[in-house]
Design a protein around this nucleic acid. Structure first.
Lengths: 339, 339
DNA sequence: TTGAAAGCGCTACCAG
DNA sequence: CTGGTAGCGCTTTCAA
């Protein structure tokens, strides 16, 4: 009872024309006479024909899918960007293929390797990632368009889209200093990630610059913080609060992501401390939620819609011109209640 | 300077065997003698060959990609489920193709139509959605395996995975009654979505059952609430608070999603009211964040990891047996501080 | 403009 | 077990 797949050949036969004509009609590569066109359309309707995208791109070496490799889909930061990207892709008839590597570099390399079996000319967007230069070069050599997103590493013949991460940290430190905080701590995730490392380094620089002492000792980082951030930062902060006198902890905190900040806030709240009274907190990302929690979170906004849009534009331009480009997007500090 | 794509033919030539042998070696369909195997592997390494997935599935009519159609990626509910699914898919060498339809039924149909050009035998997972029966039937007719997720609509020859939405609402109403709330309101999104409608209907039933009067008047629903939930529920609640005396509003609220609940909480907070003192709130979903906000949100948990896993199992079973199945997953109420 | 024919890179089948 | 060969469904020459 299984209906046989309708092919272009059948359509051609039904319409009494050649497959070439049907193909031309479908793609508009060459114009087709009105009568034939009508017959073909009729056949398509009658037979309920849909072109096979696979066969099409096999032959035409031109795939309409964008591959996205991301740490995971559990972080709104990525999903917002990808959403925006998908939006543009959709309008242009592209589809988006997503995979996650859960912050494992081994796994990332594996996925990258898998991508090697996709059509040349496909676009590949890689979020963060590390220790992957070799695999990336493989892809580039296979003529894929790779775009490095939200990371600093530079690989030859790839494009990149990033947020500015130096100046914004300086501004954050200055803001906290101006608000009167005498000590500032940095709560940071896994520093193998380039942009987090950048924020860490800039933090130390800025602290020196603004006259704080021993900034190195104010950096709190932990591998656990890159996974299940909410829970682990909560646990970490809770531990800090239980094992230190309040006076010995920084009065203000910069968290390298809003998730971290929110987890910390929970721990601080539970201990009976107030924000921003006892501790000031600023985050990074400006998640949708960050303006709705209590107190509302001060954070460095990274415009994700813009990022997604930029990504799409780079994809398109690379297809057209084959040229790579490096783009740096600004961050903006959103001052709310938490510091 | 562009490197020509390495094909199976070249590998065969280089290794001094036939393409068939290389294919057999690669797929393990038929065993290959050790010497030949070694030669082939050598050739693969030397030439840096990667099989073309497209050509492979064109020929074998067996695609290893799962298509997911979701309202969007901005809701952690979906992304958590998809994350879990991706995890299983990844382990089995499948890839996941995601598109969003932004809650537009027209757009959903369009995407569904596009999916028609994918390989027969592919799996398609559709989250929510409505007015799409015709397109779904088309896909089924083309021998695709379609799985309806988180929706009640039944279409012949499709599988489905859902949460139980009737009993859980009864339990919620009972919980609030037992906590002493005299009036309960329901804050609900767009009711074209089957599961939301189900919650609404169950709410009215449950309210009657537990002796509340005029439950129909306690239903607050608005189309705006399905998009940008956080902001729009905040705005809606703010409006309600400004245009009604506190005594005239329900003392307890059931929101059909945590996002809605969080937006409402913000509005209540801003007005200077306390939770759960002045208003009790319960949500639906149990987002990661819901246990970390202030006050911690009581909510009906829908185990998203389990949902994703179930989805994957259904995909696999459909591929193996071709049989469809209907699965209903339980919800669990997580009692925290907000009521 | 149109039809015929030659593949895209791979798997499946067949004979040996 | 192996090599040869016929396609999967489509696009793209190329002549007509």
């Amino acid at each position: 009872m299984t209906k046989k797949k309708v092919t272009i050949t059948q359509v051609a036969k039904y319409a009494g024309v050649s497959v070439g004509t049907v193909s031309n009609y479908l793609n508009g590569t060459v114009s087709v006479s009105p009568e034939k066109a009508e017959k073909v359309q009729q056949a398509i309707n009658d037979l309920d024909y849909t072109p096979d995208a696979l066969a099409s791109s096999l032959r035409s070496k031109n795939s309409k899918t964008i591959y996205v490799l991301t740490p995971n889909l559990r972080n709104a930061f990525y999903t917002n960007i990808i959403s925006a990207l998908m939006e543009y892709a959709y309008k242009a008839g592209y589809s988006v293929n997503i995979s996650g590597y859960e912050y494992s570099d081994e796994r990332e390399r594996k996925q990258l390797r898998l991508l090697g079996s996709c059509k040349q000319g496909s676009s590949v967007i890689i979020f963060n990632g590390y220790n992957d230069e070799t695999e990336i070069r493989r892809l580039v050599k296979k003529d894929m368009h790779v775009i490095l997103a939200d990371r600093q590493t530079f690989v030859k013949n790839t494009s990149s889209v990033n947020y500015e991460n130096h100046q914004v940290v300086f501004e954050l430190v200055r803001l906290l200093k101006e608000k009167g905080y005498q000590t500032i701590g940095l709560m940071a995730e896994l520093t193998e990630l380039e942009n987090i490392r950048k924020r860490r380094d800039s933090f130390i620089e800025a602290m020196h610059y603004y006259g704080f002492k021993n900034p190195e000792e104010c950096v709190f980082e932990d591998k656990s913080l890159s996974l299940d951030k909410l829970r682990n930062s909560y646990l970490y902060m809770k531990w800090l609060l239980e094992h230190n006198k309040k006076e010995n902890l920084p009065k203000a905190w910069i968290a390298t992501s809003d998730y971290l900040a929110i987890g910390m806030m929970r721990a601080i709240n539970e201990k009976g401390y107030s924000i921003p009274g006892d501790f000031g907190i600023v985050g990074f990302d400006n998640l949708d939620l960050s303006g709705y929690i209590n107190p509302r979170l001060t954070t460095a906004e990274q415009d994700q819609e813009l990022f997604g849009k930029t990504l799409w534009e780079v994809v398109k331009r690379m297809k057209q011109t084959g040229k790579t480009e490096q783009i740096v997007l600004p961050q903006k500090i959103i001052i709310r209640e938490s510091c």
